[in-house]
Design a protein around this nucleic acid. Structure first.
Lengths: 198, 198
DNA sequence: CAGATATATTGACCGTGGTCAGTTTAATTT
DNA sequence: AAATTAAACTGACCACGGTCAATATATCTG
C-alpha cells in the first residue's frame, strides 16, 4: 500500500476550489453555492471537486469550519463571562452566524459530533475546541460561584451545545414569525440550566 | 376566490400515494423511499405527488408524523414517570424510532418547531402534543418532589426536547462507533437538568 | 344539455449533485 | 531516456427531486 504525499498541483487545485467557493458564499450566501459554478470558476472538471471533497457538504464543512474557527479564536481571547447574561452575549456572534443560513446549521449538525472519523475534518476540530472553551469558562464561573457546581463543567458545556442547537432549530422552523433573535430564546433555558434555585 | 372541497378522486389518490409510500418505508426503510417508485406503484404521474405534498419531505412528514402519533397515544396511557430513570425508559421507544434512520431525524427537526404555519401538518401537531405530555408528566413529578420545581414544567419539557435532539445528533454523527443507545447518553444530562443538587 | 369554470392529473423537461472508465501528467525504476 | 507505475484530472453520463404548460375530468349555471 503505497501512499505518496500529495503533489503540488493537487494542493493548488484544492486551494483554487476553496477560494472560488469562498467568493461565492461571501457574495451570494452559503445556500447559493452550486458545484458547477465552483468548478467553472476554478477551471477544473466536476469530478475533480469530488476527488478533493467527499460531497458538496464536505466542501461547505471546510468553509464553515474555518469560519467558526475564526469566531472561536476571538472568543478565546475574551475574559471568561461574569454572568449568564454575559455568557449569552459572548455566544451571540456564533449564534447569529449560524442563524443566517439553514445550510450552515445542517452542515454543522451533520459533522459536529463526529469524533474525528474523517481525518482533516475542520468542523470536528472546531466542535471539540468549542466544547473545551465552554468547559473552561464554566469551570471558572463555578469557582467564583456564578453558576451551579453540582455537575462537571464538561456536562454543563454539553448542555449549552444542546440548547444552542435547540434555539437554532426553532429559529429555522419559525422562519417568518421570528420576532427576535435566537439569543433571546436562549436566556431562560440557560438560566435554568446553569443557576437552579432549588 | 372560490375554494371547493376536495373531490373524492383526489382523496383516493392521496390515500393510494400514502399507502404505497408506507409499504416502501416498512419494507425498505425511510431513506430508501424514491418519489418515482411511489408514483409508479400508485399508478399516477410524478406531478400528482407534488400537488398533494409540498415536496418529498412533506410526504415523509405525514408518514413520520402518523407514526409518532401512535407512539404518543401509547405514552399517554402510561402513568407518569416516578423517577428520571423511569422517564428515560418511557422515552426510549420514541428515541429508538428516530434513531433508526437519519431522515426521520432530519424531517422531524425541520418541521417540528413550526407553529402551524402549514395547516394540516401532522408533525407540528405531534410536536405540540409531545411537549404537552412532557409538561404534564413533569408537573406531576414536581408535585411529588421527584424533580426540581424552581422552573415551570413547560421550560423543563422544552429542555427534554433539546436533549433528545442532542443525543440523537450525536448518535448519527458517531455512526459506527456508537457503543450504546442514545438513551444511555441521555441519562446524565437529564439528571443534571431535572435534579440539581446545589 | 351545452357551455363555462374549477379541480385533478399528466409527463416531458430541467437543475443539480454525484460517479467512473478513460486520459493526461508527474514521479520512479531500469 | 525509455518504460513503468502511481497520482491527478476529465467530462459524458446517471439518479433523483421538482416544475409547469397542457390536458382531462368533474362541477356548476343558465
Amino acid at each position: 500500500m503505497k501512499t505518496r504525499a500529495p503533489q503540488k498541483r493537487r494542493l493548488q487545485t484544492r486551494a483554487r476550489l476553496l477560494s472560488e467557493a469562498e467568493k461565492i458564499v461571501t457574495t451570494q450566501g452559503y445556500s447559493a453555492l452550486r458545484v458547477e459554478d465552483v468548478v467553472a470558476q476554478a477551471g477544473v472538471a466536476k469530478g475533480t471537486l469530488f476527488s478533493h471533497f467527499k460531497d458538496k457538504d464536505g466542501l461547505l464543512a471546510v468553509l464553515i469550519g474555518a469560519r467558526v474557527m475564526e469566531d472561536l479564536e476571538k472568543m478565546e481571547t475574551l475574559p471568561p463571562p461574569t454572568s449568564v447574561d454575559d455568557l449569552i452575549q459572548k455566544l451571540e456572534p456564533c449564534l447569529s452566524f449560524v442563524a443566517q443560513d439553514r445550510v450552515i446549521f445542517d452542515v454543522l449538525l451533520r459533522y459536529s459530533g463526529s469524533t474525528g472519523s474523517e481525518v482533516n475534518e475542520v468542523v470536528t476540530e472546531s466542535f471539540v475546541r468549542q466544547i473545551t472553551l465552554f468547559a473552561r469558562w464554566l469551570g471558572q464561573m463555578q469557582q467564583v460561584q456564578k453558576i451551579r457546581d453540582d455537575a462537571p463543567a464538561e456536562v454543563l458545556a454539553e448542555g449549552i451545545q444542546a440548547f444552542l442547537n435547540h434555539v437554532l432549530a426553532l429559529w429555522f422552523c419559525a422562519e417568518h414569525a421570528n420576532d427576535d433573535s435566537p439569543a433571546k430564546a436562549l436566556a431562560p433555558l440557560l438560566q435554568v440550566w446553569l443557576k437552579p434555585q432549588a
